[in-house]
Amino acid sequence: MPTFHRYAAVVFVPEPDAFEKLGPDEFAQAPVGTGPFALEKWESNRATFKAFTGSWRKPKASRLEVLALPDATSRVQAIIAGRVDIAGGLGPEDIQALDAAGHQGVSWQDGGESAISLVTTRHLPFNDVRVRRALNHAVNRKPIIDVIMQGRTVAANQPAARAAYGYVAELPQYAYDPALAKKLLAEAGYAKGFKFVLETSVNSGASLSAYQQVAADLANVGVTMEIRSMPALQYMKNLFITCEYDDAIIVPWQSAPTIDVMRAINIHSCLSTKAWYCDSEAMPIIAAAMAEWDEAKGCALRQQLGRRYHEQAASIFLYEMVYFAGLSRNTSGFADNFGFVAYEDIVVSEK
């Protein structure tokens, strides 16, 4: 496997004797590892750990407690009240509240991209590349990035984020050009526009605001996008089990944790069991990229795919995914590296 070295770093290998003795269910409740903290107790909404001094990654803190708090507001309030030191899963609006209270807001990109995936494998209009290009030119990404995301990310225009193996630096952004969008729609036979449904599990926060901005931009060129939110479990079932989804869906172009664009491309290709986007002409390049052992040649093939996916406007590409977390004023050393937090580096000073 030419990309094994990218996957090897994210494969978790359990302690074989304990795993064989306990089995997967019991091992999950009493795991054995070499990390900086050892599990003490696992409950439905919390897990408590103590420092494991025998780890090769010795922790700076003596204890770790992980709490499940149901919404961003409660997590922000927990930091302000001094109940927690770190809160993940926040939005840009939460960062402002923490900064105003004298705490810290941090953000980072992780190799993924936010986009609206258009279902091209069923019927018109999205199997017409002119329509897909039109929608990309109809969207003004600047207010999404500058206002909604508070300038903490950049526009997306291809399958790969800047951090990913296979990113094409010279690809131009899709220009915001409503006149061109209308022209392309007219050429495709949609001078009067059309309607479609976007399905998502997002029902609040910055991501929903971004989709609402997209809907407003599309309305300016005569296209009506209805945003239909549903519970996450139902959404995932529709997407990957029953495949009962509508005209457009939210499926991130995620290269993490391998930071290889092929992870994103494979999902958005004919290789998917029930593909929503299938470009048969790209398949030989995909096969060649996955089989190529030479790093430089492999990168060139990935960049060839990036150019094709850009030219084909495979999705309405929006922005590189950005994540937000809050830290108490006494916390330092926190970093998220493509989904992995080095808890051993975190320091919480005396309050």
Score class of each variant (00 low, 15 high):
Ala169Gly: 03
Glu170Pro: 09
Leu198Lys: 09
Ala288Arg: 10
Ser328Thr: 07
Gly306Asn: 13
Asp345Ala: 15
Ala215Thr: 03
Ala18Gly: 10
Leu301Ser: 07
Lys142Met: 04
Gln29Glu: 13
Ser114Arg: 13
Arg132Tyr: 08
Ile285Gln: 07
Arg263Val: 15
Trp108Thr: 05
Ala156Ile: 08
Pro231Asn: 08
Leu180Met: 13
Tyr235Thr: 02
Leu22Val: 02
Arg162Gly: 07
Phe324Ala: 00
Glu93Tyr: 11
Pro125Tyr: 04
Pro16Tyr: 03
Val347His: 01
Met262Glu: 12
Cys243Leu: 03
Phe324Val: 04
Val322Ile: 14
Ile267Tyr: 03
Phe334Leu: 12
Arg263His: 11
Arg162Leu: 13
Arg141Trp: 03
Asn266Asp: 08
Phe324Tyr: 15
Ile116Phe: 03
Tyr211Pro: 02
Leu22Ile: 03
Ala163Thr: 11
Arg308Glu: 10
Leu64Cys: 00
Ile95Arg: 09
His137Phe: 10
Val348Gly: 03
Thr258Phe: 05
Asp94Arg: 07
Ile145Gly: 09
Tyr343Arg: 08
Ala160Trp: 01
Thr3Asp: 15
Gln254Arg: 11
Thr34Ile: 11
Gly189Ile: 12
Tyr167Lys: 11
Ser114Tyr: 11
Glu244Trp: 04
Phe194Cys: 12
Thr224Glu: 14
Val322Asp: 07
Gly339Asn: 11
Met283Tyr: 12
Ala215Phe: 00
Asp247Glu: 15
Gln104Val: 08
Asp146Met: 04
Tyr235Pro: 00
Arg57Ser: 15
Arg122Asn: 11
Ala289Lys: 08
Asn140Asp: 15
Gly82Ser: 05
Val197His: 05
Arg228Cys: 03
Glu93Gln: 14
Tyr167Trp: 13
Ala97Asn: 10
Leu98Arg: 08
His103Gln: 06
